[in-house]
Design a protein around this nucleic acid. Sequence first.
DNA 1: AAGTCCGCCAACCGCGCTCTT
DNA 2: GAAGAGCGCGGTTGGCGGACT
Length: 343
Amino acid sequence: MGRSPSGEENVGLKKGPWTPEEDQKLVDYVQKHGHGSWRALPKLAGLNRGGKSCRLRWTNYLRPDIKRGNFSDEEEQVIINLHAILGNKWSAIATQLPGRTDNEIKNFWNTHKRKKLRQMGIDAVTHRPRTDLNLLTNLPQLLAAATSLSNPIVNPWDNALRLHTDATVQLPKTYLLHNILQVLSTSGSAPPPTTEALNFLGSVPLFDQHQFCEYIPGSTQFEDFGNRHISLASNPTQIPSGTCLNMHVHQPSCNVRPITNSKPFHVDNNDNCNQFIAFPAGNSLPALISVSPECSTVNQLMENKINPTEHISNPSSTSTNLEAWEKLMEDEAGDSYWRQITE
DNA sequence: AAGTCCGCCAACCGCGCTCTT
DNA sequence: GAAGAGCGCGGTTGGCGGACT
């Protein structure tokens, strides 16, 4: 039954950094024969290493198509956007960055981007705003960071991904503003936010990273920014446009898979509760609806029935809201604007 | 100059899924 | 269908080098 056990074969194998000689042996062998079975490779290639170690060395370092050096701004932006959508799915992210490995991206994220987002007051894990008062001590840096992240994207892959990208690029700024104002409004020592600031806050939707969807009024579907239709399990009899819905979303299997062919979206009522907002279709800006944990109409409606393979139906309609938001943000992108908002 | 701290990154580890028998 | 090997993935570790004291 099964394959032969291999327990003691790992005894005495070398670990740690690879020597140039070992690298050469591995490269020579793979180029000649292909890697075949990684488990059998070390012996055949004359290496005193485990197959796992060989595979890692090859895929992360020796592969000829590996791109080395610093990440470009475009790559950085892609990582940020994809991480907002996919979470810590490093291998999935890596498939969109030719020449980059999951390990490299993971390291990059854990060092550079996590720190940067934290400085902006965004939790790097959840992409949600942090709410601690320490944020206010670094307001100038926060503003600078938020402005720098709102730079236009240079190289969008396609329209569907562009839409995602647009949305996620605006997230830090929106979160930052929310965050600042939330902290201001709940802090006894800080002055209350201005009417203008609160008005602006009221016009900003509470995005969440995995649920960029637009409710199609009168239908049983949501449409995500990749123009994929997401069907509800049963008929949502009355979900008014602009309603903020709370759904329980099982994060590891993301619904929006424009990039990789992975598992379908999975809604899990026992998992974390994520915010969700349904925009009114059309050109008007959505109003902010307060988010409450009790608002869970859709919890009962959605039960693992979302279809990830739906097609694009009307590309222009979904972009409308985003474009409106984009314009709003662009119009207000100057430093003076941010200063005014936070003063 | 020496010691300490900290960030970076290659490599390892453990888990879970897939495949084979 | 069950058992176990193979493999891939994500989290973590540890060594190295530069910055700081």
